[in-house]
Simulated scan of single mutants.
Amino acid sequence: MRACAATLLVLMTGPVFGNDTAAVLTTGGLEFVSHGEIAMESEELFISREEIRVVYRFRNDSDEDHQLLVAFPMPDIVPDHYSPVAFPMGPSDNLFEFRTLFDGEPVEAKLHEYAYAAGVDRTKFLQKLDIPLVSISQEAIDAIKELDAETIDDFLHLGLAAPDGFDAGSGWETHSWPNWIYRATYTWEATFPAGETVIVEHRYTPSVGGTTGVAFLSEPYDDGYDPAAEYRRKYCTDESFIAAVRKTLPDPDEPWGAPFTESWISYILTTGGNWAGGGIENFRLVIDKGSTDNLVSFCGEGVTKIGPTTFEMVKQNFWPQEELNILILERYEAQ
């Protein structure tokens, strides 16, 4: 049975970006592989809107040292130019301000970047045109604006651009926005000594998507999209969580009126199954919702509240079957 951290908030107060994996570089890019002799002994994961921190203990169960290419995949960044996205603003060669320690020593990780549109890798296509790969960056937006009409038509045909028409007071205008998915993975070489345990630590700035209002209280759209069902599937928003949000509505007939903004954080868990034993022997997750006025919901079992804003999930022999998606509702003062 799944428990929702938001449910804990309701009961207790009245109205609550990837795992390491082994990898190989092929002509098609990076591929994640399983490794049968190195076990993930433990993972301690902390997630907030501002930072993700993770500490692993890896144990080499063999009698030989293993030199591996270790990979840390980041969640895809899907462009949505109509929603507020808190995008990491680090330097171009370390966008997420990703930092790694291997047994206490700093590691220089390499960033691999890709651009996908309509399921096709268009990285080289964009690079030939000197288009920045980060689709929601201002640099990419400006680069699209400078393209000629023929090239824009090519971008629209390939799904690399999305058209936008509007009248800003001077007549109808049509513009195009970058529309490709940005995908990133960090890699580095590491030696896992025979019969020993090593500690790997990461911290980085997550990419946080969201909306300026609450999107999941409305009725299904005319095209069939049901936001409430989608949020239940993705964030396990149960009835207690929904009721807590509805209580804040100034007008029950205005579902967009709840005094919250949404923040979405994703973390790749499933690659934790690529190590010996197929899972994580000891797993601990702590999520910080940021403020006691905020609400949080995510899919998890055995979630407990351990602080005014923090929630914990502890698992043994954890074999993640899906990625972790977190919804934080940030409270603001209604005007």
Rank of each mutant, 00 (worst) to 15 (best):
R57S: 11
P91V: 08
A86Y: 13
D80P: 03
I47G: 03
V55R: 15
H66A: 14
H81E: 06
S83Q: 14
R53T: 11
E51C: 11
L68A: 03
D61E: 15
G90R: 03
N60F: 04
V70Y: 01
D61N: 12
M89Q: 15
E64W: 08
E50I: 05
P88A: 07
P79T: 03
D63A: 12
H66D: 11
E41Y: 09
D76C: 00
F46C: 02
E44T: 06
E51F: 07
M74R: 00
P79C: 04
D65S: 09
V55Q: 14
V78E: 03
I77P: 00
L69R: 03
S48M: 05
R53Q: 13
A86N: 15
P88E: 05
I52F: 05
D61V: 07
E44R: 11
F46L: 06
F87A: 14
I47L: 08
L45D: 01
A86H: 15
Y56R: 11
I77R: 02
L68P: 01
E51Q: 12
F46D: 04
R59M: 08
F87G: 04
D93S: 08
R59Y: 13
R53W: 10
H81R: 10
D80A: 09
R57F: 06
L45S: 02
A71V: 03
R53P: 07
R57G: 09
D80L: 07
S42K: 09
D93W: 05
N60H: 06
V70D: 01
P88I: 04
D76R: 02
H66F: 13
R49Y: 04
F58G: 00
I52D: 04
S62T: 07
M74P: 00
F58E: 00
E44N: 12
R59G: 03
E44A: 09
I77G: 00
P79W: 02
P91H: 05
V78W: 02
Y82G: 15
